[in-house]
């Protein structure tokens, strides 16, 4: 391929490039972030201490069975938050990539049907 054609092609590819999300990376990052956040928030309330510790944070127990604002609860919460964060992030990335893939495929098909399109 001639140098000029190569450069033209690279420009086209650069203009058309659509970013993908890395589901695995996002899952780990979001999972860890959520886990650390919940663990930190729980531990913070435990260290501060009071008669009725963390009434609002305790409500998470509705969704994370076994979670309470206690020391064992902090670790249980860590695990739940990690899984939830990871699943949500992975879901977002998967849906995003799926839609991108679908749209690009549709674009490519449309182009192939155009006269002279390739």
């Amino acid at each position: 391929m001639a140098e000029k054609d190569r450069i033209d092609l690279e420009w086209k590819m650069l203009d058309r490039a659509v970013a993908r999300l890395r589901a695995g990376v996002m899952a780990v990052v979001f999972g860890l972030s959520a886990a650390c956040a919940l663990f930190g928030a729980t531990v913070w309330l435990l260290i501060k201490g009071s008669e009725n510790i963390g009434p609002h944070l305790n409500l998470l127990g509705n969704f994370f069975p076994g979670y309470k604002v206690t020391w064992p609860g902090a670790f249980i919460g860590f695990a739940y938050a990690f899984v939830s964060g990871a699943v949500i992030a992975w879901g977002i990335a998967w849906i995003y990539n799926f839609v991108v893939h679908f749209r690009l495929k549709k674009r490519a098909n449309r182009k192939n049907f155009l006269p002279g399109g390739k």
Partner: peptide, 28 residues
Amino acid sequence: TAKVIRDTFANYDALAMGTALGLMAAIV
């Protein structure tokens, strides 16, 4: 390196991003 640079300057698909976040928020 061309691939890395393409990835670096690739645009995000806004519709896909909206769909992903919208669907996930609704599901949660």
